[in-house]
Design a protein around this nucleic acid. Sequence first.
DNA 1: CTTTGGATCGTCT
DNA 2: GACGATCCAAAGG
Length: 186
Amino acid sequence: MAPDLLNKVLATADRAARIVEVEAYAGAEDPASHAYRGRTARNATMFGPPGDLYVYFTYGMHWCANAVCGDPGVAMAVLFRAVSPMVGLEAMRAMRPAARRDRDLGSGPAKLCQAFGIERSFDGADLVRADRRITILDDGVPPPRRPGRSRRIGLQVGTDALWRWYVPGDPNVSRSAPSAPATREG
DNA sequence: CTTTGGATCGTCT
DNA sequence: GACGATCCAAAGG
């Protein structure tokens, strides 16, 4: 699902942005997933129906958002890591005073949540029915034929999997691919 | 452009 | 009580 979400459009009532970078998190099989050790109050949304939005709080100050992709009970999710702003740039700039350039508005998982005003109240939103005025649209732009691919960013575990995908050359992509982690020897 | 360290608190051990 | 699926400003090249 993750590469198929590239070039789709994340939209609210007054804002829209193209998804240009994602990461997959594979529940019980993935030590980097919040769901690796089973269901908790925090990750409960990931165990719900596909098409729901899983929003979590991290580093004491940031929100990040995922699309739930697994059948109910199977905690699969795709993290939105970067978007290219299309509509509502003024509103996004107002939400992100630290952004010097427009490419700073959505070039990171917590940045894009700030730009869209996504926080706790969006956790569990139904992206298909748009019950909280947030949804994913297809405007006819297909996913890249040959997406960029790399290890995931910011992890201490699960660093081998190539589960990050991005639109090659897009200036909103958050950063270049992480290098291989140092291997511990005994 | 890259590197580095500090901020800050909900969550699970 | 330790640690994040991060961001930012500051400093150096």
